[in-house]
C-alpha cells in the first residue's frame, strides 16, 4: 500500500515532466533536452524565495512564474530562430541550452548540494498504513493538474488549436491559427508543469544541485517514449508506470540495485514491441 502510494506519487512527478517533453515534441516537433533543467531552475527559485520570505506559498508561486517565463524565453531566443532547420541542429541547441542553465546555476549557487527546508506535513494513517501527507498532496494535486490539462486540450479553442498544429501545421495555419503563439503557449504550459514537478520532487528529496534536473528529466523522457511521445495520455500513463516500477523495484532488496537498468530495459522492450509507444499513434507522414 505504501509502496503503491509512493510509486503513484513518483509517477505523478514523472508524468508532469513527461507532459512537457511530449507536448513540445507533438506541437513543435522537437526534443527539448533542456526541459529537465527547468526543474532545477524551479528548485533554486523555491530555495531562494523561501530563504528571502520564509513563505512556502510565495516560493511556489515564484517558481511557477519564473519557470514559465524561462520556458517562453528559451523558446523565443534559442528555438524559434531555428524553425525549419534540421532536427540535429535543434537537438544540439537544446543540449547547449541545458548546459547553459546548469552552468549559470553553478555560477550563482556553486556546485555543492544545498538542503532546503520545506514545511513537514507529517504522516497520516490510512487503513493501518502510515503515508506521508506530502505523498498524498503530490498524488492529488498532480491528478488535478493532469485532469485540468486534459480538459483544456480537449475543450478549449486554444487546446484544439494545439491538437491541430500537432497534426498538420499548414492546415492549422489555414484555419487562422497563429502557430508561433501556440508553440509559445505549449512551452509555457510545459514549464509550468515542470515547476510543480520540481516542488513535488523537493518534498521527497529536499536537496538541490545544478544537475538536479538531469535524472528525473531522463526518466520522464523515458516515460514519455514508453507512453508514446506526442501523446498526452501516453505521457501520464508512462510516468505513472515508471514511478510504480521504480518504487516496487527499490522495495525488493534483491533487485533494488538494478532499478534503473530495469526501467531502461522496459523502454527497450517497449520500443521493440511497439516502437511508437503504448498509446502512440501512427501518423501518415505529410508531404
Amino acid at each position: 500500500m505504501i509502496i503503491i502510494a509512493d510509486g503513484l506519487s513518483l509517477g505523478a512527478i514523472y508524468a508532469l515532466i513527461a507532459l512537457g517533453y511530449t507536448m513540445v515534441y507533438g506541437i513543435a516537433k522537437m526534443l527539448n533536452f533542456a526541459h529537465g533543467d527547468i526543474i532545477m531552475v524551479g528548485a533554486y527559485v523555491i530555495l531562494t524565495t523561501l530563504q528571502m520570505t520564509g513563505n512556502p506559498y510565495i516560493a511556489i508561486a515564484a517558481s511557477i512564474v519564473v519557470c514559465t517565463v524561462a520556458g517562453i524565453v528559451i523558446e523565443r531566443l534559442a528555438y524559434k530562430p531555428l524553425r525549419g532547420a534540421s532536427p540535429l541542429a535543434v537537438l544540439i541547441t537544446a543540449i547547449g541550452v541545458s548546459f547553459l542553465l546548469q552552468s549559470v546555476a553553478q555560477l550563482i549557487y556553486g556546485s555543492k548540494s544545498q538542503a532546503i527546508a520545506l514545511p513537514d506535513f507529517g504522516k497520516i494513517t490510512i487503513a493501518g498504513n502510515h503515508i506521508a501527507v506530502s505523498t498524498l498532496i503530490t498524488l492529488i494535486v498532480g491528478g488535478i493538474i493532469m485532469a485540468g490539462l486534459t480538459v483544456f486540450v480537449k475543450k478549449t479553442s486554444t487546446g484544439r488549436a494545439m491538437q491541430a498544429v500537432s497534426e498538420d501545421r499548414g492546415a492549422a495555419l489555414l484555419m487562422g491559427v497563429n502557430v508561433n503563439r501556440i508553440i509559445m503557449i505549449t512551452f509555457a504550459i510545459g514549464s509550468a508543469l515542470a515547476a510543480f514537478a520540481s516542488l513535488f520532487y523537493l518534498m521527497q528529496i529536499p536537496s538541490i544541485t545544478p544537475t538536479l534536473g538531469s535524472m528525473p528529466g531522463i526518466k520522464a523522457f523515458t516515460a514519455a517514449v514508453i507512453g508514446g511521445i506526442g501523446s498526452i495520455p501516453g505521457a501520464m500513463l508512462g510516468g505513472v508506470l515508471l514511478g510504480l516500477i521504480e518504487k516496487v523495484c527499490l522495495s525488493i532488496p534483491a533487485i533494488s540495485p538494478y532499478t534503473t537498468a530495469i526501467e531502461f530495459g522496459l523502454l527497450i522492450i517497449i520500443l521493440l514491441v511497439k516502437p511508437i509507444g503504448i498509446l502512440g499513434k501512427q501518423r501518415r507522414e505529410k508531404v
Partner: peptide, 13 residues
C-alpha cells in the same frame, strides 16, 4: 480561405 489539396482535415479530431 482555402480547401487544400489532399483535404488535410484533422484526422485525430
Amino acid at each position: 480561405t482555402q480547401v487544400p489539396e489532399g483535404r488535410r482535415i484533422f484526422q485525430e479530431l
